[in-house]
Computed example of a mutant assay.
Amino acid sequence: MVNSIILEVLNEVFKPLGFRKKSANWYRVSGDLYCVVAVQESRWGESCYVNVGFAPVVNVKAGWLPESKCLVRFRVDALTSISREGLDLLSGQAAEVGGEDDLRVGLVEKIATPVAQAVNPIESIQDLKSLLCTSVSDQVFIHREIRGELLEEG
């Protein structure tokens, strides 16, 4: 149940920002960067994960690139704006405790909106570098192809 509700909530938040939906993914090209937000079902129970990926536009063929192929990837729990309470909403128990309406409201406020606020303004490597330095913990995969550019000082 959490998976279907988070898919609906992400669609409501990301569609107006120009993201297109493909299965359980929302993606767009903005400026020099491609961004994708993907929902991944957990292998253990009813919970799910929300992942974010970025790649330079030149790496994207036919307008689509899965999160797993992006050069920068992280789970939303790496975003400093996402609380432990918000992450708990992605678990299978969340719907049982508060009901579907409360779950929906919580997912909008504590997951979808903070993720959208983090990724929406990112249009360049410099924007991404700033996001990684100010709003993301160190739990980020950065491919060696882009690592030097993102990690250099200044």
Score class of each variant (00 low, 15 high):
P121V: 03
A112W: 03
M1S: 10
Q93W: 15
N59F: 13
A118G: 03
V136N: 00
G154D: 07
V72I: 06
R104Q: 06
V39Y: 02
G86R: 00
M1T: 11
V50S: 02
L7T: 02
N25P: 13
G99V: 01
I6W: 09
V140F: 05
T113S: 05
C133D: 13
L103C: 10
R73E: 04
N120A: 13
N51P: 12
E67A: 05
G86C: 01
F19W: 08
R28M: 13
S81K: 02
N11V: 08
V136G: 01
L150H: 13
N51R: 07
V36L: 08
L89P: 06
W26M: 11
G99E: 00
A94T: 11
D77L: 07
V108L: 15
E152Y: 12
G18L: 09
L107S: 08
D102E: 13
R73Y: 09
G53V: 09
E8N: 14
D127F: 05
G45N: 02
A55H: 06
L107H: 09
V52L: 07
S4M: 13
G99W: 03
D77P: 05
C35P: 11
M1E: 14
E123Q: 15
T113R: 06
C133Y: 15
G148M: 09
V115P: 01
D127H: 07
G53D: 03
S68R: 09
V29F: 14
Y27D: 09
A95S: 11
P16N: 14
V52H: 05
Q93T: 11
V105G: 07
A118N: 01
K15C: 15
P56M: 06
V50E: 00
E109Y: 09
V36R: 02
V76K: 00
I5A: 11
A55L: 07
I6H: 07
L131Q: 04
G98E: 02
E46W: 06
R28V: 07
N3L: 13
D102F: 15
I142K: 05
S68F: 06
D88S: 12
I6S: 06
R147M: 11
P56E: 04
E8W: 14
T113G: 04
I82F: 00
I122V: 09
L71G: 00
S47C: 07
I6G: 03
E153D: 13
E123F: 12
W26T: 12
E67I: 00
V50K: 01
A94G: 09
N11K: 05
V119P: 00
I122T: 01
A24R: 03
L90G: 00
E8T: 13
F141Q: 10
R73A: 10
N120E: 14
K21S: 13
V9K: 03
E149W: 09
G106M: 08
V2D: 09
F74E: 00
V58W: 12
P121M: 04
V52A: 03
Q40T: 12
L128K: 00
L7P: 02
V9N: 01
E8D: 15
A116F: 02
S23Q: 15
